[in-house]
């Protein structure tokens, strides 16, 4: 398996994630798509690390996971709060931040 295959898979996963963020309304699913984009980039990092024979990419992948975990905590908390107040998890419903 060459690095190219990993990268192609990573690109496919990333694009799926982007598509999900743009088209889905459910905040949980949007959130999961964001996670998928993060993990797609993790895959690319790890693939490059293996190709270059050093641990830099692996380290960064761990960093991303830590940040993603922290983000999940905060993000889920926000989603929970919005759901409690609005009885909906749609990302189109909260629109107070407009002109």
């Amino acid at each position: 398996m060459s690095t190219t295959h990993y990268l192609v898979l990573s690109a496919i996963l990333f694009s799926l994630g982007v598509l999900g963020v743009l088209v889905r309304r459910n905040a949980i699913i949007v959130f999961m798509c964001v996670e998928m984009m993060l993990n797609a980039s993790n895959l690319a990092f790890v693939a490059f690390a293996q190709q270059n024979g050093n641990l830099n990419g692996q380290t960064i992948a761990f960093f991303v996971m830590v940040v993603a975990a922290a983000e999940v905590v905060v993000g889920l908390a926000i989603i929970m709060t919005i759901y409690r107040t609005r009885r909906s998890a749609s990302v189109d419903e909260p629109n107070l931040l407009k002109y």
Binding site: V21, L22, V23, V91, D92, P94, N95, Y99
Partner: peptide, 11 residues
């Protein structure tokens, strides 16, 4: 007017 409030359009 660009600030529609739709998170997805920002994305």
């Amino acid at each position: 007017r660009i600030q529609t409030g739709f998170a997805r359009s920002y994305a």
